[in-house]
Simulated scan of single mutants.
Amino acid sequence: MSQVNVLDPSASPLDYYGYELRRYREAAGLTQKQLGEIINYTGSLVGQIETARKLPTAEFSERVDAALGTGGMLSRLLGLVLRSQLPSWFQQVAELEARATEICTFHTHLVHGLLQTEAYARAVLGAMDRSNLEDRTAVRLARQRILEKDEPPVLWVILSEAVLHQEIGGRETMRGQMAHFLTSEKAPRLNVQVLPYAAGAHAGLQGPFDLFHFPGDPSIVYTEGYGAGHPTANLETVRDCSLRYDHLQAAALSIKDSAELIRHVMEERYGEQHAVA
């Protein structure tokens, strides 16, 4: 008889998930293979997730919740599991994103992670390292669950026009990313503005930054370097970046004009007529 791995549920959210999955499965009197057959996954995958060797997905969690009658427990736990898989230096930022009532971002060359499509995120994460790429992509996209809450944060996004022209992942990926931007036209809590090349010198020349606002707590500025994040609640820094953001919003195109520029770039640069035969 093969030895059963005994997980310490307090070791990590992933271990806790695996522990609870096994507990619910055994309470239902099912083997890993039998549960796999019910939810249309292999018993081997069930075993890997139970022993914290594989990350669960949203679809897997939903199917297990339905099959075992957990009341949605595993689906609710999934967000914590995926967040715990972020790089240690970034986990604090994910917590800020989850708590903030308003997030203001400015980026010069890359789409912010909260707005990246799956294909775009995969291309970004795989640029230098393709190991565990599917899991790392799922972890990044899991941050976007905050936008699906009953009371999601208000998200203001200012991006340089260069972001629209920096082709990442190929034309199809960029076209999909542009189309995703355009969904903001019908989402009042999601606001996308483009800082055009014509703006010239602007208040964000020192680099990208994010502002997090909370009810009753000090605002926080976040900047990022290679393999390190730098959140600060320093009042002078927050005031400076808030003023910079005001100037960037004034220099950027309106939300409507930004959408028109995005639509133009999507068709002219990434349209089917430019596809390689």
Rank of each mutant, 00 (worst) to 15 (best):
L125P: 10
G170F: 10
F181H: 05
T137I: 01
Q193T: 06
I146W: 02
P196V: 14
E148R: 00
L159Y: 09
M128C: 10
G169D: 14
V139D: 09
M174C: 10
Q166P: 08
A123M: 07
F181P: 07
K149Y: 02
R136K: 11
V194C: 06
D135H: 09
A123C: 08
A142V: 01
I168C: 15
G207Y: 03
A119P: 05
I158Q: 06
A127I: 08
A123L: 08
A179Y: 01
L164N: 08
E172H: 12
L164M: 14
A127Q: 14
F209L: 04
M128G: 07
A201R: 14
V157I: 11
R136S: 01
L205F: 05
L155E: 03
M128I: 13
L133R: 05
E161N: 13
W156G: 00
L155A: 07
E167G: 09
H165I: 09
A199Y: 11
E161Q: 15
N191F: 00
V111G: 05
E151N: 04
A138Q: 04
E151R: 09
I158C: 13
A199E: 07
K149H: 08
D135M: 00
D150C: 01
Y197L: 12
L164W: 13
P208T: 08
R143K: 04
D129E: 05
I168D: 15
L190S: 00
V157N: 10
G204Q: 15
D150T: 03
L159G: 07
K149D: 04
Q116L: 09
E118C: 02
R143Y: 05
G113L: 10
G169F: 06
Y120P: 10
S131W: 05
A179T: 10
D210H: 10
Q206R: 12
T183N: 02
A127G: 12
V111D: 07
